[in-house]
């Protein structure tokens, strides 16, 4: 009897998250889908977002996210390589880096927002701009991306490194021609995941990338990203809920699309490496 009850409890409670997931997705699709149309995707928002579309918002989002991804790919990959390939040589140094990354990973995004505002917007003088937002997101994405990439690099069996050296390859070529390609899939996946996180982020962008709805003209322009648009419509614009749902749907659609595209690239890449 007791066992039966606890079984029911586990089934009931444990099933909740999945049910809620379905509930959320259905709710948002239901109320958002009716708003989505071609003009919604291609027009600039008007009347605080109640009418018009979200084209400029999508463009700003893509700008912010792609700049952040590019910078963190570069810095993140280099750091991950150092952490995995040189940790024996620079033990202390790597320990400190790893520790810093752990702390960075736990910092709440709103604190990143404050930091971005104080440093990138004010000290660096970028103001409320796509660049400030992107740099703030870069700082946020790094720890996660580095961890995944490092894990991927460590998974590459040591024997391949040894073989490379035994064949008289230079250390840099061993790393970049053998180890990194072997880990490419993990690296790309890490990149997608952190890209998706960047695109989902709101709090860190509240005081860095700005709210301006116009089509951004350069990276120094302020640009309203999707998540902020959703927040603004939901909280500050009476009658904005439907539009908020529609924008949320677009955001989720973008996230899914990014996942699909990059996973298939990773697949293709791995196949191509063989030839």
């Amino acid at each position: 009897m007791k066992v039966l009850l606890s079984k029911i409890a586990v089934l009931g409670l444990g099933g909740l998250p999945i049910l809620v997931l379905a509930w959320i997705l259905i709710d948002i699709s239901y109320s958002g889908l009716s708003e989505i149309s071609w003009s919604f995707l291609t027009e600039v928002p008007t009347n605080a977002g109640r009418s018009g579309g979200i084209s400029s918002v999508i463009v700003s989002t893509l700008w912010v996210v792609s700049i952040a991804t590019m910078i963190s790919t570069f810095i993140g990959l280099a750091t991950a390589i150092i952490l995995s390939e040189l940790s024996a040589k620079w033990e202390k140094f790597c320990l400190i880096v790893r520790w810093s990354l752990d702390i960075l990973a736990g910092v709440p995004s709103i604190v990143f927002g404050l930091f971005g505002n104080a440093f990138f917007s004010q000290v660096c003088g970028f103001g409320f701009s796509i660049l400030s937002g992107a740099l703030t997101l870069t700082v946020m994405m790094l720890p996660f991306f580095i961890r995944v990439a490092e894990e991927g690099l460590r998974q590459v069996p040591n024997v391949y490194r040894k073989t490379g050296y035994a064949l008289g390859m230079r250390p840099l070529s061993v790393t970049f021609k053998i180890v990194v390609p072997q880990a490419s899939k993990a690296i790309v996946i890490g990149l997608v995941l952190s890209l998706a996180r960047a695109m989902s982020e709101t709090a860190a962008l509240l005081f860095t990338s700005g709210y301006v709805e116009r089509w951004p003209e350069s990276v120094f322009d302020s640009g309203r990203v999707l998540s902020i648009h959703i927040y603004d419509l939901a909280m500050n614009v009476p009658g904005g809920i439907e539009r908020a749902n529609a924008s949320a749907l677009v955001l989720i659609g973008l996230l899914i699309a990014i996942n699909l595209i990059i996973y298939s690239i990773a697949d293709f890449w791995q196949r191509k490496r063989v030839v």
Binding site: V159, K162, T163, Y165, A166, L167, G168, M169, R170
Partner: peptide
């Protein structure tokens, strides 16, 4: 080291 390892090969 690079040229040493080229002239002293190794099979594992």
């Amino acid at each position: 080291l690079v040229s040493l390892r080229r002239s002293v090969g190794m099979i594992f």
